[in-house]
Design a protein around this nucleic acid. Structure first.
Lengths: 152, 152
DNA sequence: TTGACCTAGTACGTGCCACAAACTACATTC
DNA sequence: GAATGTAGTTTGTGGCACGTACTAGGTCAA
């Protein structure tokens, strides 16, 4: 695992301000993703790639747009996933330059499994610490934030 | 910037479940951290390193513990920060094998500035989207989750 | 239609980040 | 003081990201 749930320099019993709480929560969430990914030898960026391809095919440029990566970064990312048999490149029928990346059956299987495991772990965490009402609150608050405009 | 606020495969108008909301929120938060870090040419792991050293000195092993990294990873991480003049290594007075890593004045200055900018951006985001009551709720909920036991 | 662009993707070189295994040097323990 | 343990570095490998340069296919205008 790459990230860690621990705060980076805070003892574990003082009250948190909103910013710290959010930052630490993000590390916790990413840590879980990272740990689940590790079971399948997937990095977070690979998980995100597979997640995008879950619902659609896409060209390299489009994928890069979703992931915030340069097209030149995509070549390697997709290449490694392809070498492992998780995705495949096919020529675009409409554009001879373009390529369509899609999940292979193996990639899809792994994606579904990983997503289920991820869901299981996060849900487990939430249910141990939050009431049903709080869960609803959390979802609403997080959704409101995520819906915010592009990054400041 | 490395991460992206966009969901990875979801359109931006359907309701989110709790797991997706949390995951996306973590990408949003990390994306802001990453963007702020980029202004100072700092990666997220470098930011975390500086954050730990804000309150204390620490040995390589201890730092690795906080960051979830192997000691062999620490050598390079600290080495790069040292080469940039952000941290310094000094021999431990009590243990001839050990090294104490601490912030340099430059490192401290950069850390304070970055933390302030980070706080400013996240606060800005939150204040635009959430009422004061909601902010309090969010802090409580996030804190409750972060206080949870070690990763499942 | 053909030449001047533009665009999708790849190749290459560089650097950061992470790990495992092997090693050095100091500390501890008996 | 010899065996063992511990802190940190070194080396080699691989993933990830970038910028630059390149190839091949599309577009558009003269």
């Amino acid at each position: 695992m790459t990230t860690d749930s621990t705060p980076a320099g805070l003892t574990d019993d003082q009250p948190l301000n909103t910013v710290d709480a959010l930052v630490q929560l993000s590390f916790l969430t990413q840590g879980i993703m990272s740990a689940v990914g590790a079971e399948y030898d997937l990095s977070i960026i690979q998980i995100r790639l597979l997640g995008i391809l879950r619902d659609r095919q896409a060209g390299m440029l489009e994928l890069g747009g979703h992931l915030g990566l340069d097209k030149s970064s995509m070549t390697g990312l997709v290449g490694r996933a392809e070498k492992r048999g998780l995705v495949q490149r096919s020529p675009s029928p409409h554009d001879g330059r373009a390529v369509l990346v899609s999940l292979t059956p193996l990639g899809r299987q792994l994606t579904e499994r990983g997503a289920a495991e991820m869901s299981r772990r996060i849900t487990g965490l939430i249910e141990r610490r939050l009431t049903a009402a709080q869960r609803t609150q959390l979802t609403e608050l997080a959704t409101a934030l995520v819906r915010a405009q592009p990054l400041t």
